[in-house]
Structure formats: C-alpha cells, structure tokens
Design a protein around this nucleic acid. Structure first.
Lengths: 237, 237
DNA sequence: CGGGTATTTGACGACTGTCAACGCCAGTGG
DNA sequence: CCACTGGCGTTGACAGTCGTCAAATACCCG
C-alpha cells in the first residue's frame, strides 16, 4: 500500500535526490507501516533489512540490559529517520518500540545503499542527520553521567518540547503538548526507576513547572523547565 | 611540516579515494601536529576548521558541565578520526584534550568537504566511522544509566584493551597495556568522582583483576574483567 | 463491573558524592 | 644532596540521592 501522506517526509529525506529518480524504481518498494502502541518495530540483533521515516506517533529506541531493564537512547518523533545502518552492518544495535500507535514509511536498506551510490549528496545528507543524533546522544551522556534526576527529566521534557516546536508540530507559544510517555518510559530514558521518576514529577508539579494531563502535558513555566534541565537551545535539532 | 609517518593513517581514512587524487592538491594542506599532555586540541564552541587523525598518544573527548566538571564522551586512541563536522556545522560540540603527548594529522574541514563532493565513497566511509562511534556512545549511555561504578570502569578498561588489540597496538595475549589515564580521567569517562574511582580500582586490584603500574596497566584476569563490565566483544570496533 | 496497567506513597538501605587529610613520587632549584 | 612543590593516589567519616520492596490507589478498556 502506497503512503500518500508520507510523501512530505520522503521528500525531506530525499530532498537532495533528483525528483525524476524518486518517481523511479526505488520508491516502488516504499511502503507504509502501521504499528499499534507497545509493539516492536525491530529488535536489537535482528537483521537490519529496513530503515524508516516515522510519520506519526512516538517511538522509544533503547538497548536492553542483562538484568531485564533497558536504557533509552532516543525518543523518535514524527519526521525522524530511524533504523538506518551503513552498508556492511548486518544487525540493529538497538530496539525500536512503539510508544503510541505509529505510522511509518519503510525503505529497503539495500535500496537506500544503492541510491546513495548514485546520489552522493544523499550520503552527505544522512551524515548530517547522524551527526545531529550523535550530538543529542552526547547530550544524554552528559545528563546520565553528571546531572540529578530532576535535571535529567526537565532536560528531556524541554528537549521534546523544542523538537516538536522546531518541526511545527506545536504552535509557537503553545503550552500544552501531546505526551504519550509513561513514567516508566521516562525512567528508561533518564536512567531512573519508575518510582523515582514519579517523585521527581511530583516535585516539578509542586514547583509549578508542569502539569500532566492524560496523554498530554502542560508546561506551566517553560523558562524554569529549561533552567532546571540546563538545556542549551542551540543543541536541539 | 609534512608527516611521513601518518601516511598510513591517511590511507586508512582515504582508502576509498583514488590515490592519484590524494597526491594532489588537498593533501598539500595536510599537516602534522604535536601536542603535549594536558593541552587542548580544540574546545567546545570553537570554530571547527580542522579534523584530525590521531596518530600517536591518547586523547579525551568531553563536554563541560556548568558546575565545572566534565563528562567524557570518548577516549581517542591512535588511528581514531576526530573533530570532523558535516558541512554547515560551524562549531565543535565537544572539547579534545591530550591525555599524553600526542601526534596528529590535520585536514582542513573544507578540504574534506570538497573531497567528499568529488569522491562519494569517502562520505559513505565516514558514515560508517560515525556509525561505529555512535554505537560506542550508546554503549556508554547504557553504562552511565544502568551500571554500577565497578561495571562501568571494568567495561571501559576492557573496551580500551580490545580497541588496542584490534588495531594491533597490542599483541594477542599480551596482558600489559599502556595506560596514561589518571583516576580523575577515568572518573570523567564513567561519570564518577576521582575518589570513588579510586575505591573501585582498589576493589578490582583486591579481586585480582588488574594491577596498575606507572603509566601502564596489567590485566591479570581478562575474562573476569569482561564479565564484570558485561562487555560484548562484538560491539567493540 | 472487573482486570490489568499506571501512578502514588512510605520505609529502608545501598551506592556514590563531598569534604578533609595524608602519603607518595617526580621534577626543580638551591 | 636536600628541601620544596605540584600532581596524583589513598583513606576515613558522613550525607544525600536514588533503588528496592511493598502496598494502596487511580485509571482505562472491554
């Protein structure tokens, strides 16, 4: 089934590829996927045959640990390009879990590699995307290694807010955002337990910084949230 | 001053570029740099005009935090390609500090971008390098978020050991490695204080896992080290 | 209404940070 | 040769953050 609505997203990824070519062979193998909440798109160690553009919904990219828990690597938001592996890498290094119901556009990994061969600018473009992800990954390392629980959570929420803002999923000045993450998932991202995440959320509520709704989150004091999390706006893509 | 010895390394980076071209214009602007221990190669926020191949010595890549400390992102070992930024990125996102005396080969960032334009395979190659760094960055996130101090330190040391082994800086089966990191730097990498790092190192010594020498480290029980750190060998480049 | 999932709270303890002091060693200069 | 200095390693006492365990409550969907 062709995905009409994800045309926009595909253009974003392939903006550097001549459009005649896109109409061509490769895109025939582009498919839309729907995935309900709590289901995996792929798992760590699995053969990496596809890459995806997330069109709608949120996903958690994470790595499992031996004791059964997991460490979140990134919350994928609509527009994110996930699951790409360079040629020669056989398996995914992480798992991708649907946080809410999601819609994705899938590309064959080998199709992408072939396109990269023909359109060198595509590789440069993907490089830039990867470089951004790397920067946010380093941001996360800084938080996990050196920040308190409250700072990490504030940082994460502020980051998500600005990412949505930057891709115009939120209006400028809007104080309420969709928020499908459970406290357990927040904990996965911040290296905390669900219990402690809860305590921190209460504190942030009591401080008048934010107010959770069902599946949504009101940001009551964005400035304070940014200050607590020590978020540097320029680092957010 | 031209760098004869870094010819090997340059080939590693440019292995995908026709050799006639390498003899050409760009490489004229390749220079060797020597930097004494404790000096910065570049700092966060600085204009990213150069990228480097580390030829000799160890470096710490890190990001500073507001309270004055720092979070290590990666220990760069001989052969590592550092400081590259995709076209359009103006400033480094992290700082690079020489741990020991180091020797580097520098390339102009814009020269690299130009080469990438002409030789698309170079971009693919850099992509692969970045992807590896990303994987080890995610490894670190997992440690910082979910592992104990002992696990993190064991993981880091084992990782460094295998990285040296993989690039033949160590012989197979050799149990002693060069180790210019102070306990403070170990702490920077693992998100611990120097004091606590010390306690963990003592524990590892008492358990007969390792034995520090001056500027060197003896691995007495590699298997145990790997087990404690839960290192997955296949994830190490 | 019932069952599963998510949130909330309390009590307790472990891990790690902070503060402070001391020892060791190499290099320096007298 | 020795005193001095600065960097690093080492140790102890204490406090705080956060994890663990357990239980109660709230919420959602069928």
């Amino acid at each position: 089934m062709q995905c009409a609505s994800c045309e926009i997203r595909r253009r974003a990824l392939f903006q550097v590829v001549p459009s005649e070519y896109i109409q061509d062979a490769q895109t025939k193998r582009t498919h839309q996927y729907d995935l309900p909440a709590r289901r995996h798109l792929y798992e760590e160690g699995q053969a990496a045959s596809m890459a995806y553009t997330l069109y709608d919904g949120w996903m958690l990219l994470y790595r499992a640990i031996s004791s059964g828990g997991r460490q979140g690597l990134r919350i994928a938001l609509p527009g994110d390009f996930i699951g790409f592996m360079p040629e020669g890498e056989a398996a995914y290094h992480h798992s991708a879990l649907a946080v809410s119901n999601v819609v994705l556009c899938g590309f064959g990994q080998s199709d992408l590699h072939e396109m990269i061969d023909r359109h060198s600018q595509l590789s440069v473009h993907i490089n830039r995307i990867q470089s951004r992800y790397m920067a946010s990954c380093q941001d996360a390392m800084l938080g996990l290694g050196r920040k308190t629980a409250e700072q990490r959570i504030a940082h994460l929420i502020a980051e998500l807010y600005f990412r949505l803002l930057n891709r115009h999923s939120l209006q400028d000045g809007e104080t309420s955002m969709p928020f499908p993450l459970t406290q357990e998932l927040l904990g996965d991202m911040t290296g905390l337990t669900a219990v402690h995440t809860n305590r921190v959320m209460r504190k942030l509520r009591e401080e008048g910084v934010l107010e959770p709704q069902r599946q949504r989150l009101d940001i009551l004091d964005l400035e304070k949230l940014v200050a607590i999390g020590e978020l540097r706006r320029r680092d957010v893509e």
